[in-house]
Write a protein that binds this DNA or RNA. Structure first.
Lengths: 111, 111
DNA sequence: GGTGTAGTCAACCTACTGGTTCATCAACCG
DNA sequence: CGGTTGATGAACCAGTAGGTTGACTACACC
C-alpha cells in the first residue's frame, strides 16, 4: 500500500511507458496525442498514465485551448536519486570515478 | 507489464517495507527473522518481499545451516541511479547550478 | 529418533493496475 | 449552429501484488 511520496515516485517509474513519456517530456512539453503517438495503446491509457505521473508530482498540466500540455517536474526524481545515492558505496567502479572526478573539479575551483 | 530490468527494479523499490529491508541490509547481511522483526507482518510476507528483491537482483541469498542470510547487491540500484541521472538538469538545487556552471565554463573554454 | 527453530510452499482473499470500449465535455473552425 | 479535434470519465475485465493461515521441509541438538 504505497502512500508515501517515495513509494509513489518509484511506483510511477516502474512502468516503461511512463518512463518513455518522461523521456519525451525531457525535450519539452507535449500534448496527450503527441505523447500517445509512439505507443500501441489508446489515448485513454496514456491519459491514465499521465494521471499517475501527475499524482506522483512528476508532471504538471497546462491548458491552452483544447490542449492540456504536460510538462516535466524533476523534484520527485531528485528525491528518488537522493534515496539511491545512499547506496553509492555498493555501486561498482565507474560512477564512483565520475563522482570523484566531479569532486576533484569542484575542489580545484573552490580551493 | 514490467518485464525489463529497470521496471523490475523500480517496482521492487516502490514498497516501503522492501526499501526498509534494503536499508537494513546496507549494514550487512541478515536472516529472514532478523529482517522481519521490525515489521508488523508475518515472516511469510517478508519472505515474499525477499523473493521480489532477489528476482530484481537486489539481494542474493546465502546458506548456512538452516539460515538463508540475505545480502545486498547494488548493481540494479546503480542502473536505476543512472537512469535518474539523465534528469539532473531538471533538479532544482545545487547539482543543477553546478551543472550549469560547468557547462558555462566549458562554453567559455570551447567558444 | 524426536523436538525445536528457520524458512518456504500453497491456497486463498482483497485491492489495485493497466488495459479496453463507449460516452461525454470543451474548445476551435467553417 | 454543427462538426471536428483534444482529452477525460465511467464501467468493465484479466492479471498481479501484498497480505493472511496452515502445512510442510531442512537442519541442529539431545
Amino acid at each position: 500500500m504505497p502512500v508515501d511520496q517515495l513509494s509513489t515516485t518509484f511506483s510511477a517509474l516502474a512502468d516503461p511507458t511512463r518512463r518513455a513519456i518522461l523521456e519525451r517530456l525531457a525535450d519539452g512539453e507535449a500534448t496527450v496525442n503527441e505523447l500517445a503517438e509512439p505507443f500501441p495503446v489508446t489515448i485513454q491509457a496514456v491519459s491514465k498514465h499521465l494521471k499517475v505521473l501527475e499524482h506522483a508530482g512528476l508532471v504538471t498540466r497546462g491548458r491552452a485551448a483544447q490542449w492540456r500540455p504536460a510538462r516535466l517536474r524533476g523534484r520527485p526524481l531528485e528525491d528518488a536519486a537522493g534515496w539511491l545515492a545512499r547506496y553509492r558505496q555498493f555501486f561498482e567502479a565507474s560512477f564512483d570515478r565520475l563522482d570523484a572526478h566531479l569532486r576533484t573539479l569542484q575542489g580545484e575551483r573552490d580551493g
